[in-house]
Design a protein around this nucleic acid. Structure first.
Lengths: 230, 230
DNA sequence: GAACGGGTCTGTGTATACATTCGCGCCGTC
DNA sequence: GACGGCGCGAATGTATACACAGACCCGTTC
């Protein structure tokens, strides 16, 4: 694998995991040294991360890890709703029913994950990732898939703020089950509307999370440069 | 301005204008020599063009200018509909009415452009570009705007195949006028539905264009390497 | 004659050296 | 004391040199 790919993947994961916190300033030489490669692959990785919206040019020199905000979550969901509603609609028209019948069984059983704590939440995310993949596969539209991938990238960052919440997990499982059943049944309209409803509830949940998170960290900015300096 | 930015812009324009035809193979050294810069900025430009979906990695070595196909137009419009419907809906909720009232006047007068031939078509594209910009401005959602920009990039390539068509231009002007009036009036539902209808008609029109274009060029592949070699 | 293997050669990937620009701090002046 | 200009320095932007890989060609063999 190419060094630039590894640099990109590594930095991307570190941003998504929060190891590189929002507002952290990244310099080429510094990261090149840390990752054990030269500036060239790091520059390429930076370029891709900027395109992903995970890094942004700082006023003046340097790149910063982009910030999460409640307003940003609203904006992200305005995009996500448009894309996922459409994807669900198209998936219902083009799916292999067996794939979604299988997913329906797994979502129906997902209530049990409630008892596994954080591990259960993690397992649930794997399940929703499988659903996303199944929808992409059914829709067979690379333009839509690319746009969805970009939107989901940012979702991962928000999702990371969540702790296990049995009530919300049970609700989400019921919402997802309805979506999957609608797709399996080939009911495009229901699939789209059920997706819309689910995303609305999901958004409400996450906006609350982000607001709480920003409150908690407002006096202790997440950027490492700022904290280590003080 | 940076050499890599100029390389990117130049190559992008050449692809969108069809100067670099689909299936054309691009090599770093070759383009570096042609553009009068070193490989480094060319590599960066290539990376951005791949992210834009205008270049794709060829099997083996080299990058190729991506192809247009009727199926691709369908896929593109599945994405575009999702994004533009949502954008129109949100614009109707957030617009400054004066901006769209002004646009409505311009679209109402656009019928006159029919008499200007190709120049009229060009002028009409400028008008729709202004509408796109006004919608982005009203929506104020960077995620959505980025996704729309990506989709519109590909649209430009398809649009290039069009010749002046008085009938279609008059129809399009009427459809656009309805959209703009709905946004000006703050009627989000109508704005979204009018956009959907317009895009459906637009898609039908362009699919026909692309099919005809592919027919015409099927025996004379557009890639320069193929034609000069034969 | 076709298929497989080795060698060459071109093109990409990475490192590094060089150029350039812009930020930051210091000093001077008002 | 504050503001502005100047200079230094560090970080980015570009060029180039080097390493490596894989694609193509040719020869050989079956």
């Amino acid at each position: 694998m190419r060094a630039s790919d590894r640099a990109y993947q590594r930095l991307r994961e570190e941003i998504l995991d929060g190891l590189l916190a929002p507002r952290t300033v990244l310099a080429e030489v510094e990261q090149a040294a840390r990752l054990g490669v030269s500036r060239t692959p790091v520059r390429e990785a930076f370029g891709r991360l900027v395109a992903d919206g995970l890094l942004a040019a700082q006023s003046g020199r340097g790149l910063v890890v982009t910030e999460l905000s409640a307003g940003g979550v609203h904006e992200l969901y305005e995009l996500r709703t448009a894309l996922e509603d459409q994807a669900a609609r198209l998936a219902a028209q083009r799916r292999d029913p067996r794939v979604f019948e299988d997913l329906a069984r797994r979502f129906a059983a997902a209530g049990d994950l409630v008892h596994l704590g954080e591990e259960g939440l993690h397992r649930y995310y794997e399940l929703t990732d499988d659903l996303d993949a199944a929808i992409d596969e059914a829709v067979r539209n690379s333009y839509l898939a690319d746009a969805l991938r970009a939107a989901r990238t940012h979702l991962v960052r928000i999702r990371r703020l969540a702790r296990h919440d049995p009530g919300r997990l049970r609700e989400a499982a019921a919402e997802h089950l309805l979506i999957v059943e609608a797709i399996a049944a080939g009911d495009a309209g229901l699939a789209a509307h059920a997706t819309h409803v689910h995303l609305h509830k999901s958004k409400t949940h996450f906006v609350r999370l982000v607001e709480r998170h920003l409150d908690e960290t407002s006096n202790a900015p997440s950027a490492t440069v700022a904290t280590t300096g003080a």
